[in-house]
Structures are given as structure tokens and as C-alpha cells.
């Protein structure tokens, strides 16, 4: 603890007692993260449960996206970043030189803020992950496309034009296509980085329903700026502030009766 965190007055509050009995898939302990000299995450301790939806909330620049991107090592793309501490996916240590990031990213999928379908057909978009993994079996590919699009609640809208460009879809459809593309490689964890921030309310609600549905089957970690959204769809919530994890616990409890004054201020919008 050479970072002197406790002197800054941040006290992590764990308001749930059941954490130990849950099936934990991502386990961060004393995780620190640096962009060059900038200390972006301070001693994060968090256990993300399997097949639940966990929401990260907090003001912009608080480190929630950075933490999200640690889980699939997407921060590797930025030069001069450094991780310290331990981050476990099941039993695999992610903060290690020897991690096969390609295999890791097949286990941990990601949906981005700005939907980014490839300039290919809808069909090719869904099977991209399988194609690059070397799958050639036509029947399997066809089956995957139908299954994933159905899971992403997009099948009925696009089944007649699977081979037309994905760029002709609407914003909400594109984002659902990105979700279908993500679940096609059958990941254990799906990371979502503000997936609805560029969508209209109707598309947002369809994505929310989808997230709800998918959290039966996948572990979902979602970053959101929308408090109502976090309250609606997540089982667990984590409040980040200035690189510290301020509070982490059951969503219901956190929104009803936050243990921390800062959390309460943020949730109720009395934040400065």
C-alpha cells in the first residue's frame, strides 16, 4: 500500500455479505493502472459474479472504462500503460506477460460505445470471429448466424437480407448486430462500454431487454451513464470516482440505500 490511498479519504464499502458464496468469474485485487505517469485506477478490489449483470457507474474519467478494458486487455493498444496487482479471470491471471490475449478476447467479448460493424454483409459480420478462428464448416456457420441473430433479437428484421451490407442497418440494429457478433464466439464475459449512449430511447430499451435476456447465459459487465438504466438491468453495481472504487454491491440496495455519501450524491444527481 505504498500509494497512500487511505489518506485520501476513500473508503471502499462492501454492502453485501453474500460475496463469498457467489460464483466469481472476474476477481480484481489491489489492481492499479497507469497511463504513463497518470495513475488511473487505485487499488481496485472487486468480485464480479458469473451470469449476472454488473453495472459500472460514475462520472466521466473516473476509470470505469479503463477497468472494463483491463478485463480483455484492450488497454494494451495504448502505448505506455501499466497494470499492477492481480486480475483473475476464473483462475487465469490477466496481469501477466504470458497471457494469450487472442484466446483471452475470445473468452471476453466486447461491445463498444459506437457500434462498429465491419463493412461487410450482415452474415459475414456475425461469423467474423469464427472465420478468423478458422471455422469453415458451412452448416455450422449458417446455424451460428441464425442462433446469434435470434439471441440478439435481430433475426426477424434481417433474415431476408443477410447478405446485404451491415452498414445499411439503423443505429440500434447495428448495435444489436455487434452484440450478435460478440456472442457468436461464445464468450464467458461480455463487456459493454456505454452501448446505448448513441441510441434513441426506443433502440435503448430494446438493447436493455436484450442485456437482461443475455445475463441469464453470460456474465455481463456494462458501463453506463444512465442511472435508471443501471437500476433497471443490473444485479450488481459499482460506483467509481476519480479512479477509486467507492462502492460495490447489490444494485437494489445501492440505489435504495447507498452506504456511501458520495454514491448517494451521484445517484440522486446532487453531485458536484
Amino acid at each position: 500500500m505504498q500509494w497512500g490511498l487511505f489518506s485520501q479519504g476513500f473508503v471502499m464499502t462492501q454492502n453485501t455479505e453474500t460475496a463469498s458464496s457467489e460464483d466469481i468469474v472476474v476477481n480484481a485485487s489491489e489492481l492499479n493502472f497507469f497511463y504513463g505517469d497518470h495513475h488511473a485506477l487505485h487499488s481496485i478490489n472487486m468480485q464480479i459474479p458469473r451470469r449476472k449483470c454488473t453495472a459500472f457507474i460514475g462520472p466521466s474519467g473516473c476509470g470505469k472504462s479503463t477497468f472494463l478494458r483491463c478485463i480483455n486487455r484492450m488497454n494494451d493498444l495504448v502505448d505506455g500503460t501499466r497494470m499492477e496487482g492481480s486480475l483473475l479471470l476464473d483462475t487465469m491471471e490477466l496481469n501477466s506477460e504470458t497471457v494469450d490475449v487472442i484466446a483471452l478476447r475470445r473468452r471476453v467479448g466486447m461491445v463498444f460505445q459506437k457500434s462498429n460493424p465491419f463493412p461487410k454483409s450482415i452474415y459475414e459480420n456475425v461469423i467474423y470471429g469464427l472465420r478468423i478462428a478458422g471455422v469453415r464448416n458451412r452448416a455450422l456457420l449458417d446455424e451460428t448466424v441464425e442462433r446469434c441473430l435470434q439471441k440478439a433479437a435481430l433475426w426477424n428484421e434481417v433474415k431476408d437480407r443477410l447478405h446485404t451490407s451491415a452498414l445499411k442497418l439503423s443505429g440500434g440494429q447495428m448495435q444489436r448486430l455487434c452484440i450478435a457478433r460478440c456472442i457468436a464466439v461464445d464468450p464467458e464475459v461480455i463487456l459493454m462500454d456505454e452501448p446505448c449512449s448513441a441510441l434513441d430511447p426506443r433502440a435503448t430499451s430494446s438493447i436493455e431487454d436484450l442485456v437482461d435476456e443475455l445475463s441469464q447465459e453470460f456474465t455481463i459487465v456494462i458501463v453506463t451513464h444512465n442511472m435508471q438504466q443501471a437500476a433497471r438491468i443490473s444485479d450488481k453495481a459499482a460506483f467509481f470516482y476519480e479512479g477509486h472504487l467507492v462502492e460495490f454491491g447489490d444494485t437494489e440496495q445501492m440505489f435504495r440505500k447507498p452506504a456511501n455519501q458520495q454514491t448517494q450524491d451521484y445517484i440522486t444527481g446532487r453531485f458536484s
Binding site: M74, R105, R106, G109, M110, F112, P117, Y128, G129
Partner: peptide, 15 residues
């Protein structure tokens, strides 16, 4: 080439 396009491929396990 937008960053999102690269990240999309890398996030799916592309080398």
C-alpha cells in the same frame, strides 16, 4: 481507418 474498426476485430480475438 477509424479506431473502432480495429478494436472491433481485436476484441473478437483477431490477431
Amino acid at each position: 481507418v477509424p479506431r473502432g474498426a480495429r478494436e472491433g476485430s481485436l476484441a473478437l480475438g483477431g490477431s
